[in-house]
């Protein structure tokens, strides 16, 4: 079980997360739903241990063990990984090299082809370089394929749909379900309620707090009715604080 307990995070004097509490049980599909600017990606980076996102208050626990001070690599060794929102470019690295991490991931060419296919790309991409010759959407799909090549206990997908067309929601759901069948806990961060439908539990985030949580259908509908038309998430800080 991965837990965020009373987490508060301030960056450059801006309070991004405010006494946040979340819990992710093993083998379930979670979604973190919220408008842009509400702190969702901050939660993703914080869970992965990215340096800039170390909380000033609160703890991150993995099966009861405090991992708050562990960095990205140490958390990956414990079975936590992420597909970051922005899929970065790697000059000179082919997709095959990237998927197998230069041989560190013991996988066959067929495994790589299959992962790529599940992410919606054909095997021609294996020889292509993960650089600026690929679009952001193509790199995003390669990133999703790379997640399928790993065997992790917790997978954080930060806005997996950004840069990918509507038709691909099915691809994303499919990947989440494949991971789920392997027993992986998936934590999908999104501002689209359609993605929330394919989960077991949803957190609704507003102004760096859990504003509501529960059944995905209920949270999706709540989000659509209230949050979707709210252009000023920061104004909700007062409401959130009063809860």
């Amino acid at each position: 079980m991965l837990e965020l307990k009373n987490i508060s995070l301030t960056i450059d004097e801006n309070k991004i997360l405010n006494n946040l509490n979340m819990r992710f049980d093993e083998g379930k599909r979670y979604v973190i739903l919220g408008n842009n600017g509400t702190g969702k990606s901050t939660i993703a980076n914080l869970m992965m241990g990215v340096k800039k996102y170390h909380p000033q208050e609160g703890k991150i626990l993995l099966n009861g063990k405090d991992i708050t001070d562990l960095g990205v690599y140490e958390r990956a060794k414990l079975g936590i990984t992420i597909a970051f929102q922005n899929s970065v470019r790697f000059e000179g690295i082919t997709t095959f090299d990237y998927l197998t991490l230069g041989g560190k991931v013991k996988a066959s060419l067929e495994d790589a082809k299959k992962a790529l296919e599940l992410a919606g790309l054909n095997s021609d991409y294996l020889k292509r370089r993960v650089d600026s010759s690929l679009s952001g959407g193509e790199r995003k799909r390669i990133e999703l394929a790379s997640i399928l090549m790993l065997e992790m206990k917790y997978v954080i997908l930060d806005e997996p749909d950004s840069g990918i067309d509507m038709m691909s929601l099915e691809t994303i759901s499919n990947i989440i379900n494949i991971l789920n069948k392997r027993g992986t806990t998936t934590i999908t961060i999104t501002h689209r309620e359609e993605i929330a439908q394919n989960s077991d539990y949803a957190y609704l985030i507003c102004a760096g707090r859990v504003f509501n949580e529960g059944a995905p259908e209920k949270m999706a509908s709540y989000y659509k009715e209230l949050c979707d038309r709210c252009d000023h998430p920061n104004d909700l800080l007062k409401i959130a604080e009063s809860r």
Binding site: M48, Y73, A76, F84, S87, L101, K104
Partner: peptide, 17 residues
């Protein structure tokens, strides 16, 4: 680039690797 490093370390590569 630190974003490249974080991306790879999140997949289980050490900083040196």
């Amino acid at each position: 680039n630190s974003e490249q490093l974080d991306t790879l370390m999140a997949k289980g590569m050490s900083e040196d690797e």
